[in-house]
């Protein structure tokens, strides 16, 4: 009885070999298999097709599939490396790997940089930061006068833009983050440390011994 589902799941659209994913990421094979439990749950809440649609992503984050968020859009966009508007299992595992407590800090810094570099210029410019600041205020039902927003941006760029060219490059970003570690607070998910105990059911069916990988 306990062995019936493994082959079926390997034929599910979006499923990828846990051994290969474990080799590419920080997760063990058992952890990748446990993440598949989570992925199955998230990818079946609106359309049960083995892929995470943006509405499903929003539903998981906000418990509301219709809630629009520039930030959730940015995160979805960065997870969806194939840029086809759905997150498959491989994309899900590779992106979450960056959020593991033991993932290299440089990977987290890079991911956060790309979050802000919306136009993919290799720099974070003032307009991009302003747009996100306004989105944050709107999300929090807060308003700030434009001159206050400009003052916050002046202060931010005076500190971060050490080359004084009006934009923040990767090195400047890294220096800023080192000074303000709280900027990276969203880049680590403690849940990922205990993923096999949170989503254990796949692990009990695993065909692969982690000690061999």
């Amino acid at each position: 009885m306990g062995c019936f589902s493994s082959k079926q799941e390997k034929q599910t659209p979006g499923f990828q070999d846990p051994v290969a994913l474990a080799q590419e990421t920080i997760f063990s094979v058992s952890e990748v298999e446990a993440l598949y439990e989570l992925f199955k749950k998230l990818s079946s809440t609106v359309v049960d097709d083995g892929l995470i649609h943006k509405e499903e992503f929003q539903l998981a984050l906000f418990k509301n599939s219709k809630r629009e968020s520039l930030f959730a859009d940015r995160v979805f966009y960065l997870f969806n490396t194939k840029q086809n508007n759905v997150i498959d299992f491989g994309e899900f595992v590779r992106a979450l790997s960056v959020f593991h407590p033991s993932a290299p800090p440089e990977d987290k810094i890079e991911f956060a940089f790309r979050l802000f570099d919306q136009k993919r210029t290799g720099f974070i410019n003032r307009e991009e930061v302003k747009q996100m600041l306004i989105a944050l205020l709107s999300e929090s039902d807060m308003t700030l006068a434009d001159d206050v927003i400009e003052t916050i941006l002046d202060k931010t760029f005076a500190e971060a833009d050490t080359k004084n060219d009006g934009k923040i490059d990767k090195d400047e970003w890294r220096t800023l983050v080192m000074k303000h570690p709280s900027l990276m607070r969203n880049m680590t998910l403690p849940y990922l440390k205990d993923i096999t105990t949170s989503f254990p059911s796949f692990v009990f069916r695993s065909e692969v011994d982690d000690s061999n990988t």
């Binding site: 996100m132 929090s140 607070r185 849940y191």
Partner: peptide, 26 residues
Amino acid sequence: TKPIVMNAFELISLSRGLNLSGLFEE
């Protein structure tokens, strides 16, 4: 008036949309 103590990135990092812990919660 109170001085502004947070920079823009600190404020932005407070967004719920950037906190992925929701993916793991029921």
